[in-house]
Design a protein around this nucleic acid. Structure first.
Lengths: 199, 199, 199, 199
DNA sequence: GACTAAGCGAGACGGTACGTCGCGTCTTAAA
DNA sequence: TTTAAGACGCGACGTACCGTCTCGCTTAGTC
């Protein structure tokens, strides 16, 4: 801070620094009390930032919470590479999601935000645009390769397949309370393979 | 002496009458503004009942909202009868759920309560106990008959099958925004039949 | 008649017994939390009596509190006997009041009731009628004897003298927080004697 | 920083403006219904201020009520000037108190607050510190001059004299209901003069 | 090198709803 | 008839956060 010329502190720098402070504080609070424990006032106090600074960047606490976990969420879900094995690729598609949702932070954030995502027009739109659509695109490639290999029916519906892959995962997370254990991804994958097998 | 059909006003009567007034007001408010628009104060004002009377019966607005739709939810989901046709019975299991969730009231309530169900220990416990477990029991009968008929694999896992049936439905409701159209139930049913087909 | 040898329980008995239970509970609660801690609901719970039974006898918690300490208050303040010494008789008039108000129970009750006595028409009327007037009558006798003995001026105003005797005591109790110590009564007495001395 | 003298709506300004609105509303409500009629919610509604803003400044309605009349109370009770006449100065000490307490507003406020002042540690402390002690200091000067003039005994106890002057006034206000008429101050003054006369 | 304006911290404010307390009324059922 | 039991409408409480709105300070980039 005093370091005269060490940190040139452009406006963008200041912006970035307070943004980082906010997101870190948000993650810390989320880890402690989940979405219900998250308040803008709390984030402001913890990050040493003014409430207005937070409101300048995010509309409400839901957007903030999503932003706080966005990187981890997005970066953990990469497109499966072509490994010549449809089952392996489907597994590579769904396994990371299960793993991420097993983490306390991410699971509690998703649990807490689901109602908002399901209700808020803007938030749901953003969620689909930025999260679901890219995932569908990833899955479409896997399925196309599976069809070409003769593993999957040519008319396999990508959306439906996606719903079968992730539906059970979210259902466990949100409703049934069944564990997101290591057997889940393979079992889901196998069921999908059978459901959409060629012939 | 019971004055035939006047108003005998026993304690239970008063209790029941204000309970009805509360639940009706709750449904009306839910229909208008969904769970976010539901406030205890609003219900009290609309039902002509004191706030305390509401708090005497339900811990918070989530329990109240669930109670308000409970009857419709539970009564709409009956065990499929044995009709000698596994596909028809699976359809009879999942179709009513899709239909119910298509209604504005029920879908907005479920959307709004999901986060609470997923986060609140008591509420999630109650939800599983009173809602999921009975449904699993219903499905178990259908699957047993399917196995006996040679339609389903003997080792068909009821929980997994249930997750495959309802997971896509809730995923549409909460995240993808895809419509709960008439084709959904049959498509889900067929996929499950293939995924767990005998042989 | 049927009650064989147990308790004949006439209606008056029941009435008296619950009244005693109420007053005892009231005193206990007053001793613990003073007038602010006194609630009708608390008294009902503690005495095992229904709220309605309390309301049948006393209009509100102020009347109840006053009733609960009434006996002690009234019985402690007897008319000074003629002992041939005006100073001794004035002392015998004011000393017991100071002593009573030194007790934790009585002082906290008076502190807590003062505003009600000062504001409520009925309560203030009852207080004057049942408490102040008898005391004035007691003091009038003392003063008349003092005048006859030549100790006090013949035109000594009883009300004014009374105000001088008790005013400082209540002022300490309510406002100044000065102790109601043993020197207070004599000092007040002497001042009054001088203020109204003959000649 | 100096802000000259225009209308720059500084933070202090906003603070002062809402404070004035609150105190005015408080006085109006007190005038109408006394302390029992005073509610924070009522003050908020009448002053157009949020409840929280009131709670930010005063702990409860008693502090608020006291604050609302504080100026009138304090400004009305000035130290008697040296006029070379002890009786006149004692009268100048006690007369304004009687006059103030004759006003409907002030008398009803004091009646309503007395129990709180007598019971609440903080409030009673504040009352003594800010109100009684300054008055004792005023009276001490009067008495010192009276002693120097040979009107009062050299060992005249200021606290006791104060209690004799104000005790009767408050006793009338709170308990006896006797009027605070114009004769009261002179009679109290004369009695005190006799009680503490030199020789 | 001085000036402008962006961005920020600070924090007061109006507001909504919360969940709680105790009031005093009322009705029923038991003694 | 009196009581206990207890549900109820009601008013107010004090609290938690919300999102908005200045206000000055600090500083970066422009003239």
């Amino acid at each position: 801070m005093p370091a005269s010329d060490s940190l040139p502190t452009t406006r963008a720098d200041r912006r970035a620094r307070s943004e980082q402070a906010i997101l870190e504080a948000t993650r810390a609070i989320l880890a402690e009390g989940g979405v219900p424990g998250l308040t803008i006032e709390g984030v402001a106090a913890r990050s040493g930032v003014a409430k207005t600074t937070i409101y300048r960047r995010w509309r409400d606490k839901d957007e903030l919470a999503l932003a706080a976990v966005w990187n981890d969420l997005a970066s953990g879900l990469q497109a499966p590479r072509d490994v010549g094995d449809t089952r392996a690729e489907l597994l590579a598609f769904i396994e990371p999601l299960v793993t991420i949702l097993r983490s306390t932070l991410m699971s509690s954030v998703i649990r807490g935000l689901t109602s908002e995502i399901a209700q808020d027009r803007d938030l749901s739109h953003a969620y689909r645009e930025q999260f679901i659509e890219p995932r569908l695109a990833q899955l479409a490639l896997v399925i196309r390769r599976g069809v070409e290999r003769g593993d999957l029916r040519p008319d396999t519906n990508v959306r439906l397949a996606h719903e079968f892959l992730v539906g059970p995962v979210f259902y466990r997370l949100l409703f049934s309370g069944q564990p997101l254990d290591e057997g889940l991804a393979p079992r889901v994958t196998d069921a999908v393979l059978r459901a959409f097998a060629a012939q």
